[in-house]
Structure formats: structure tokens, C-alpha cells
Amino acid sequence: MRAKRLVALNYYIQQRKSVSLDELCSHFKVSKNTIRRDINLIIANGTIEKVYGGVKSLVNSELVTFEHRHITNHDSKEAIATTAASLIEDGDFIFIDSGTTTVGLIEQLPPTIQLTILTNSLDIINVGATFQNIRLLLVGNTYKAETRSFVGLNMTRMISKYNITKAFMAASAVSIENGLTNSDLMEYDIKRTIVSRATTTYLLADYSKFNKATLLTYADFEEINVLITDKPLPPGYQHFCDAHQITVITSPITY
């Protein structure tokens, strides 16, 4: 119950940018002492700070349009997707996350491959439907046009019945301190549950995503097993990956 309130509390603050303690107490129907304890936990994630009489957001929760993100760093994303596709084998049961990096992954698969794909991405569904031997499963019950994805709350029970061998995840931003972050509460629920269920979790992230944070942390950095990126990591990241047995694969752009 408290974990869900913390997520909802963080989301509420980020949406309003700045909010008083009295408003938070009224909205969540809890005491001021409870709100203060919750705020202290959220502050540790670096997404909010205290101000006189309340709190304010420290992150930019605005989503760039999917079309613009698809153009940004296109070559880097294509290189990462090509490498990720090479790690998929016949018989795998994989999850492919929504996002402009992961969407290119399915386009790199051989046409005869046989596997099952669980996804919440409209683009993955559309491309996957052209493969004769790919079985498609959809997660999410509400379509979100801005990200071309299906989202939903309380997806844990539905996702938990699947034994996912490989999960290919995207993130709006990545940092050692705040982990893998995104900006949507309903996507957060799906991403968090997928990471907890997958045998191997792959993060697909180009250089522009590092040392940043957005609204919600859906996984700690050390929860991933393989990081696929396009350039040498920022200072400290390689040491962190080595210490936590995270395999780093660099996929440079080829012309």
C-alpha cells in the first residue's frame, strides 16, 4: 500500500511542479507526519526537494513526441537494435519494450525465426504480424498515442504468469543513482513487473540517455544483466557494471 502511495505521490508532485504539504495531506488523506516520511524517501531518489511549506519537482517530466525521438540519434539506435536482435534465438519467449530504440529490434530479425513476443508496443505488433513464425502477445489495456504503446495499471498478475527468457528494455533516462527511469505511471507498472520476471534483462540505451533522470524509477541499474549502448560509458559506469556483473556491449555506428 505504501509503495503505491509513494509512486502516486511522486507522480502528483511532478505533474504540479510545486505543491504544499497541506494539499498533499488533503489529497492522499494521510497525516502530515506520514507525508513528511514519504517525502524523505522520495527525496533520496533525487526527483524532488523541500521548499518552504511544501516540495517541488527537480526533473523534467515532459515527454518529447515519439516522432521526434525516433529521429534523434537514429543511427545509434539502429546499431544498438541490430546487436540486440543478434542475441535472440529460436524458441525464445521475449519481451520487447515500447520505445524508439527497441522498435528497430524486430526489423533486424531473420524472417524464419520462431519465437514468442510479449510487448506493449503498437509498432512491434504491426511488424511482428508480418512474420510467419512469431507468436504475438499484448500487454496493456489502454492505448497511449504519444508513445504508440499500450499501458495499464495493476498488470502484475497478468504478466507474472509468463516465463520470459529475455526482456529488451528502454528507458527515458539512465543513471547509477536513479536507475532506469521513465515518465509515465502506467508504463512504470508494466516495466517494473517485466524486469522482475525476466531471466535476462537487456537495457538498450544510447549515449544521450546517461547521467539523467525522469519521473519514475522502474528498476535499479544493478537489476539489468546486459547493457547495449553505442559509445564508451561515462566515468564510473564501467566500474559499476564490472562490480555488479553487468555485461556491456558497445555497438558503434558503421557507415
Rank of each mutant, 00 (worst) to 15 (best):
N154I: 09
I94G: 01
R5V: 06
Q238F: 01
V55M: 04
G54H: 11
A243L: 11
M169D: 12
L109Y: 01
Y207R: 14
N10K: 09
D242I: 10
A79W: 04
L136A: 10
Y162W: 13
H27M: 11
D184P: 01
T82N: 08
L185P: 01
Y207E: 13
L6V: 06
A79P: 00
L109R: 00
K166N: 08
Y143T: 06
H239N: 14
D230F: 05
T112H: 14
F150K: 03
I246R: 02
D38K: 08
H244M: 04
I43L: 09
K209H: 05
L109K: 05
L6F: 01
I125Y: 12
Y237T: 03
Y162I: 04
I134V: 12
S57R: 10
Y188W: 14
R5A: 07
L122C: 08
A8F: 06
T250N: 01
N10S: 12
F240K: 03
T119A: 01
I42K: 06
Y12A: 06
M155F: 00
A3L: 15
V64C: 07
L87S: 05
T214N: 06
D92P: 08
E89L: 13
I80E: 03
K32W: 04
R37W: 10
A8H: 08
T34V: 09
T200H: 10
Q108C: 09
L204E: 03
L136I: 13
D90V: 07
L137A: 02
A243N: 09
F240H: 06
V64N: 10
L122S: 12
Y11L: 09
E49L: 11
Y188D: 10
D184Y: 03
F28K: 04
P111K: 14
R5Y: 00
I176G: 03
D22E: 14
T142Y: 11
S61T: 15
Y207I: 12
M169I: 10
D230N: 14
V51T: 12
V55N: 02
L153G: 15
N45Q: 15
L6R: 14
M169G: 01
L9R: 05
F93W: 02
D242C: 02
L136C: 11
I94S: 00
Q132P: 08
Y12T: 00
V30N: 00
I224D: 02
D189Q: 08
T34L: 05
E107V: 04
T229P: 02
K50Q: 14
T34M: 04
A213V: 14
S61L: 14
G140Q: 07
C241W: 02
N120I: 05
K56L: 11
H68Q: 15
T112S: 11
E223L: 05
